[in-house]
Design a binder for these strands. Structure first.
Length: 573
RNA sequence: GCACCAGUAGCUUAGCUGGAUAGAGCACUCGGCUACGAACCGAGAGGUCGGGGAUUCGAAUUCCUUCUGGUGCACCA
């Protein structure tokens, strides 16, 4: 379709010049071209409103006159003027053959490109704070990050998934404090993370009433940074225990990282010292109220690099990590997926980073913010006991799909596995369906919906597709020739399939997986319409072959799309 | 107080750098399983695109203003 647009733009340029002596650039004309929403208006449209004023003619007359200069040929089947629009109808036979041919040739590789040229794209996602169970708040970064990872992979980049654990900072001074005070009250072995987070919450509460507790926590953290053995051992225990638990959850969700690192690796060390030296060298590190800071602009609080008690800050550790990432990976992009609460933070450190790394690495820094998850009752709060743990949510999702499998008497060998694929798929799909910046009010019923625009709906279409292909023993490497002209419904499905490469590109460029999610819904829904009104395994051999190609194409696109989103595609359900 | 983000049908939402009657899903009312899987499909009803102004041939989309909600603004991360 792209080539045809180029062709149309070229012809229009000539026509405009010929008829009205208008010298418009080819790029300008190309960008004016639209895709009509209503397919009755063709495939490509050129609006003529803007010429009316200068030419003193009505847009409709202009459109008609330009049309006179054009002739339908080859790729263009028909040119028609409706109102101010010149509508181009592309010969659908050629288009559908091109698209299906490409899909059949490439199989699951369809939609992949190599524009990334294997360059490194770092994606920092999930990155939970240790010593807390994995909860709903961690879910979005994990799911969005993974989708971005897969999208960049499809574009031929080398994505590097970094799980940058929140494993350093004063909060661990507080966890240590809580642990010292309350550890005997818990059965740590049984449920270490809930116990630890509870101890932390209690210490935090104590600190609110008693400033001394917070001082002790700061002291603990300072000792930790100085390498105190007792504190360090406790911290290691927190970290190991947390990781063990996280691995289990990631495994359940089919989520993998290339690198596990954490703030602790960028605390007091040569790494942070080097950053401090660089800032000093550039003369931007100044003292303010006992802390060392970098001033950014007049009316803005500075970026704090070192606290007045000499502890490192989040900002300093992030800067050290940017330096490390630049050196170690020579990245073209370094993406951070966090909630929008941290917009200001990243904005600051990206500006300070110019004193630390080369310009090209600054340009590659991207913060991808997403909206917050909140409950109907408000924010999640450990103290109020309103935190939703991911494990519980996943269990609910699996239980619900298991129940449906039983109701439907689904006949598969491994029901457990299937229930997992569907339940978790529903969860993930639901999260990736909306624009990432929007806040989400968590509603269990909504998340576990299986009808309409949901994960199970799309998975179901895929299962039906698999079922047909299997029944027909379809082999893409052995397709008989056939002559067949696709009907409107079929043509629409095929044209949609043709958009996949562009959709992947757009979703990646906008850091917006929902673009892909919605596209998959469109494909599944168009396919379903086709499926309900056309018999694939028809008596007519030509028709059957042609329709099987379409079915195969839809299968490839749905599977590919879902897999990019991190959702599995069972063949039967 | 300053800055950023969001505000589209009862609910959840799509709408690309402004373009042809604002698309979906859920819920609601009808209709469709002796078909390749009804976790489906078709039809209907439902909209002052938060309010006001401006730019334009043309605005949900751009600009200004205002209201509502959210988030962030120096030693938490």
């Amino acid at each position: 379709m792209e080539e045809i647009k180029i062709y149309v733009a070229q012809k229009l340029k000539e026509a405009l010049n010929e008829k009205y002596n208008l010298e418009l650039s080819y790029e300008e004309i190309f960008s004016m071209l639209e895709s009509p929403k209503d397919k009755a208006n063709g495939d490509i449209a050129f609006p003529c409103f803007r010429f009316a004023k200068d030419l003193h003619l009505s847009p409709n007359v202009i459109a008609l006159e330009i049309k006179e200069e054009l002739s339908a040929e080859d790729k263009i089947e028909k040119i028609q003027v409706i109102g101010a629009y010149i509508n181009f109808y592309v010969s659908s036979g050629k288009i559908t053959d091109d698209i299906l041919g490409k899909i059949i040739e490439k199989g699951q590789e369809y939609g992949s490109t190599n524009i990334g040229n294997m360059r490194n794209v770092l994606i920092d996602y999930s990155s939970p704070n240790i010593a807390k169970p994995f909860h709903l708040g961690h879910l979005r970064t994990t799911i969005i990050g993974r989708a971005l990872y897969n999208l960049y992979k499809e574009l031929g980049y080398t994505p590097v998934g970094i799980n940058y654990l929140g494993d350093w900072g004063r909060q661990f001074g507080l966890v240590i404090e809580g642990y010292k005070r309350f550890k005997d009250e818990y059965e740590l072995e049984k449920d270490p993370l809930h116990s630890l987070s509870d101890m932390y919450a209690r210490a935090n509460n104590l600190a609110k009433d008693d400033e001394k507790v917070m001082d002790l926590a700061r002291e603990n953290f300072k000792k930790l940074e100085e390498g105190d053995e007792e504190c360090l051992n406790l911290w290691k225990y927190f970290r190991d225990t947390s990781l063990k638990e996280y691995y289990r959850i990631y495994d359940l969700m089919g989520c993998k990282f290339d690198v596990y690192t954490g703030e602790s690796e960028f605390s007091v060390s040569e790494r942070t010292n080097e950053v401090i030296d660089m800032l000093n060298e550039k003369g931007v590190l100044t003292e303010s109220q006992g802390a060392k800071v970098v001033n950014l602009s007049e009316n803005e609080p500075p970026c704090i690099i070192i606290k007045s008690n000499e502890s490192t800050t989040y900002a300093l550790r992030d800067l050290a990590s940017i330096l490390w990432r630049a050196r170690n990976y020579d990245y073209v992009k370094s993406i951070y997926v966090t909630s929008y609460e941290q917009i200001h933070h990243f904005n600051q450190i990206f500006r300070v980073a110019k004193y630390v790394v080369d310009e090209k690495y600054i340009e590659g820094l991207v913060h991808v913010p997403y909206g917050m998850v909140r409950l109907k009752t408000g924010k999640m709060s450990t103290r109020e006991g309103t935190v939703i743990y991911l494990q519980d949510l996943i269990d609910d999702a699996i239980k619900k799909s298991m129940k449906i499998l039983e109701e439907k008497n689904t006949d598969v060998e491994d029901k457990e596995k299937l229930a997992k694929q569907i339940g978790i798929g529903a969860l993930v799909f639901n999260d990736l369906k909306h624009n990432k910046i929007k806040d989400v009010v968590f509603d269990l019923n909504e998340v576990l919906r299986f009808d309409g625009e949901t994960g199970p709906y799309v998975q179901y279409m895929y299962a039906r597709i698999s079922s047909i292909l299997k029944k027909a023993s379809f082999d893409k490497n052995n397709i008989k020739d056939s002559s067949y002209e696709y009907n409107d419904v079929e043509t629409e499905v095929i044209k949609l399939l043709g958009k996949l490469p562009n959709v992947i590109k757009e979703a990646a460029e906008n850091y917006e997986p929902s673009i892909l999610t919605r596209y998959i819904i469109d494909v599944a829904s168009a396919f379903s319409t086709f499926y309900n009104s056309n018999t694939v395994l028809s008596e007519d051999e030509n028709e059957k072959i042609a329709r099987l190609k379409l079915v195969y194409g839809a299968g490839v696109v749905i599977k590919k799309g879902l897999n990019i989103l991190g959702i599995e595609t069972p063949e039967k359900m």
